[in-house]
């Protein structure tokens, strides 16, 4: 009996989202979404856009990062604008994730106005789309992201992150200033859907929402995130409009804090060289989430990002 490929089609489709603003002068945009099939199933459906990689840009010296992760930015640790430019110009980031960690009351309590100014400068200097990540769910985050959203009006930024109990202000900000919103829920399909419904009910169109399923790093719940993403994508393609959003995974912050990455080879000889092990920890997390449906990977180390970028190219059927 000869073999014939049987293909599947789906009633649902992931809407496209274009982040950033095409205003000429070298300003770039990034389009994600547009999948009509499971990740990279080119043999039976269209994957309109390649998943993109955002590099992390902390707004202040990330003293909790390990040396290996700081290495590529050694001379610009407290200069987020220079850091951002390097991430784009030297390391090829498709977009940036500016983490306003310094706005946290425990980490300097930087004012919303200062944050907004930084956002404006980074946008103007780097000319790539921006994910603006606040200091964590709180009134402070609401205030900071509102100011930043205002300063970046019309720039099509992605605000991170709305969570249950702290989403109204962010939704209002996204609507008022033309931004997109990350909706984060703790590794659960139903909770993800519920938050998307709540946000949509405030009149932010579903096409302006990106799902953060919450990333469990390799060895720390990766399998939960992996399966929840597969289920979200299956239900979205199956026709559920409240689960048809592109997905974002914050890979860098979840991988670089774990013991297996931070421990040196001197302390654990049988774990092998720390550098390769740490990079692979980030790559392994990123690649597995890529094939379970991530549209945006937020990564930390440029070398890990480069390997993942190559994997994305191959998965998209380029260079074949």
């Amino acid at each position: 009996m000869a073999f014939e490929i049987t293909t599947k089609t789906w009633p649902g489709k992931i809407p496209e989202i274009t982040l950033g603003k095409d205003k000429g002068g070298g300003f770039r945009t990034v389009t994600i979404g547009g999948e009509e099939t499971l990740p990279f199933h080119h043999f039976e459906g269209r994957t309109a856009n390649r998943p993109v990689i955002a590099l992390e840009v902390p707004d202040s010296d990330p003293e909790n990062w390990i040396e290996l992760a700081k290495e590529p930015y050694r001379d610009v640790l407290d200069n987020p604008v220079a850091w951002a430019k390097r991430a784009v110009d030297d390391f090829g980031a498709d977009l940036l994730c500016l983490h306003l960690r310094g706005a946290h009351p425990d980490r300097g309590d930087r004012s919303a106005e200062e944050c907004a100014e930084l956002v404006r400068t980074v946008l103007d200097e780097t000319r790539v789309p921006l994910i603006i990540k606040g200091p964590g769910p709180s009134d402070k985050q609401n205030e900071v992201l509102r100011k930043c959203g205002e300063a970046a009006e019309g720039e099509g930024c992605l605000l991170a992150s709305a969570v249950e109990g702290h989403y109204q202000t962010l939704v209002a900000t996204a609507i008022a200033y033309g931004h997109y919103l990350v909706a984060e829920t703790p590794i659960d399909v139903n909770l993800a859907k519920q938050l998307n419904i709540l946000i949509s009910e405030m009149n932010l169109p579903p096409q302006r929402i990106v799902i953060d399923p919450l990333t469990g790093g390799l060895g720390y719940g990766l399998e939960y995130t992996y399966s929840v993403m597969e289920r979200i994508r299956l239900q979205g393609l199956g026709g559920d409009p409240m689960l048809q959003m592109p997905m974002i995974c914050f890979v860098g912050e979840e991988t670089w804090k774990v013991k297996e990455v931070k421990t040196t080879a001197e302390d654990q000889p049988d774990w092998g060289d720390q550098r390769g092990r740490a990079l692979l920890w980030e790559i392994g997390t990123a690649v597995s989430l890529l094939i379970s449906g991530a549209g945006i990977l937020v990564m930390r180390h440029p070398e890990a990002a480069a390997v993942v970028r190559k994997a994305v190219g191959e998965l998209m059927g380029e260079g074949n």
Partner: peptide, 20 residues
Amino acid sequence: YEPWMFLPLLTLRQNIYTDP
């Protein structure tokens, strides 16, 4: 292969093959 590949790859395998 390199010695440092194994902890990440085998941990990944354990994750994916864990019974949900």
